[in-house]
Design a protein around this nucleic acid. Sequence first.
DNA 1: ATCAATACTTGAAGAAGTTAAATATTCGCC
DNA 2: GGCGAATATTTAACTTCTTCAAGTATTGAT
Lengths: 388, 388
Amino acid sequence: MFPGIDAGAFAGPPAATAIFTTVLTEGPVSRVALARRLGLSSAAVTKAARPLIDLGYLHELAATERSGPGAGRPASPLAVRAEREFFLGVKITADEVIGVVCDLRAQVHASARRPLDDPDVDAVLTEVDRLADDLFDAFPGDRTRVRRLGLALSGDIDRGIGLVRYSPFLHWRDVPLGRLAAERTGLTVTVENDVKALTAAEHWFGEGVGAESFALVTVGTGIGCGLVVNGRLVSGSYGVAGEIGHLTVDATGPDCHCGGRGCIESIAGTDAIVAQARERTGRPDLTIDEAVTLARGGHEQVRAVFTRAGGAIGCGIAAVANLVGPTRIVVSGEGLAAYDLFDSHIRASFERQAFGAAARCPLFIRPLPFEEWARAAAAVSIQSLVVP
Amino acid sequence: MFPGIDAGAFAGPPAATAIFTTVLTEGPVSRVALARRLGLSSAAVTKAARPLIDLGYLHELAATERSGPGAGRPASPLAVRAEREFFLGVKITADEVIGVVCDLRAQVHASARRPLDDPDVDAVLTEVDRLADDLFDAFPGDRTRVRRLGLALSGDIDRGIGLVRYSPFLHWRDVPLGRLAAERTGLTVTVENDVKALTAAEHWFGEGVGAESFALVTVGTGIGCGLVVNGRLVSGSYGVAGEIGHLTVDATGPDCHCGGRGCIESIAGTDAIVAQARERTGRPDLTIDEAVTLARGGHEQVRAVFTRAGGAIGCGIAAVANLVGPTRIVVSGEGLAAYDLFDSHIRASFERQAFGAAARCPLFIRPLPFEEWARAAAAVSIQSLVVP
DNA sequence: ATCAATACTTGAAGAAGTTAAATATTCGCC
DNA sequence: GGCGAATATTTAACTTCTTCAAGTATTGAT
């Protein structure tokens, strides 16, 4: 059952988990609708929902306007009591820790960030702990309701045991971050790869809701991809999954640090875009923001860099669509802050490369506020409460 | 419960399905081992297994040699009674129908084939029906134990309702093949895409056994891919999945009929290999067999064609490994009849392109007897009995 | 022969779900 | 206002599946 006071995770009957997950991700639903949706009898829903209501995780909404024929008792939809519990989410980057406090529905209630100048494990833990304090201070609600912390960082991570197998940018190997952070903060900690966290968050609280399979492509310094197939996140053996950054898309493209040529990342990664823009403008100190401004201002040479990048991203997305056939695709990341320069090119390239009906797969292209990574970490923590 | 006489599918308790599936795919296991493996109590295994034994689907093996400390009652492993039930499997190609009779463990007991000269639905059904008769004639066992038929063909297929949405080589659209074949043959029919069927067969009865995720890459006229992720076959929305044939791997490569350039298929597809070999030998009527003979004989120009093809295949496999991270990969297909010419090049290219530890993913490269496609169809039929 | 170890079986008890019937609430209509 | 049809939810009796705890079975070692 859901925890009363302790930090234990949900361990009730399968029906209760399914009910709570559905209400959480798909919004208020009546018991009868839940029964239909989950293949249960309405009696089973009534019974399984009661303890969730008693514990304060669900509550009944006032009857809403009818949709059907008009007659009959109106439904009393079940809704999640978002403020029943709160979650910290922290994204760890090479030079910063960014944190948020979210409620059960992954709405942000407070946020904070701290610089990081030492990638040493202990130093990072200290900053995470301080950040948690900052978040508690900034959080207007009941602090005793915050009992979980989600951490997200890039690298090879074993979420099950909270182990960072390898983090290239922090130079960590086999760091039991989950245990260490739990000791430091006294919270129940979940650790997940950042792209997977974002994918999971999008699956439960974003555009991926209700999709049996979907893909998230992140565009920034690197190009990454998270996948949900058959309703479950794809983890990948050997610590590898979602690596699309080094697919070849243009053999006439630039050399890539991976040893290949014309990889997506070497064309559409932020660094690659800056490098190309510098080359074409002859300004060796051009920044990405200046490049964006020039492109928006109509500078054809720089514009072409973004066009080409969009084309490369579209190719990568098409590869994903052709291989796993997701129902929907989200394209996001810091690199899309200037998504007005990308959008149509990504779509055109995708539609050209996608196989048959896969071209009909809807694309959601939008920039990603950096805080969103931290929210994703909190979302993973929410998941770990509901589905241990 | 398992059917006694009727053609109904398994509908017993979840534990019984899990037990039967495990014994079927992983071989004889003791009840205690099953309990540990499936997270059940040994009492539950005893109880769930009894009806399966009574119905003749499972039986007890004589106690085997011990593995543990030596003391204690020896286990009585449960094994599948393979001859309890038999299955027809038929692969439909553009010019032939190929069929086999398999037992529950997917061992072939008889096989037959018939030419096909008319892609008309009715003509194909007639040939399938005749082939079934041929198979019944060739089958040495008890015919009344054959009650299911699996069909496999390339194209967009809805396995759930036995519908062929689109078959390019037969020019079919929305043909309810499952229903039609059931009416014709009187058998319970399952229809599946051929590559997915092969993937499912490999997952249950081949190199994929026990793998949480694995991939099968077929090499022939086309280059295809089937995926199992989180223990389940990937179906793909929009009728698309596993399309890796048109990934670009060599921008200097030949034009492809898909409109792109340097696609895997345009380099490593059987037709592409023949075309390249003809060009390099100046013999416009060279066949694939002759090309293989030349390459084996040391003809450098032709050899290079296979080397290049192997490189392209390796790239495609690496793309799959980097994106979904399977635990194992099988590379197979008619196109690998000359796999001695490919093997090392595929491996080298894969290891070069695979990301980090993904390069450690074991590759099983081997040719595919054509009959294997029919066996895969039977395997899908077996699955449909056990997991409806 | 006896003991420890391991495998399997049994029976009582419990959890989780089902069906069928009762209850609750509304709308439309008289 | 009262009544019936429609829909939602609850209740109670029952079924099914599973576990737990205790027993039986079979072996090797002493």
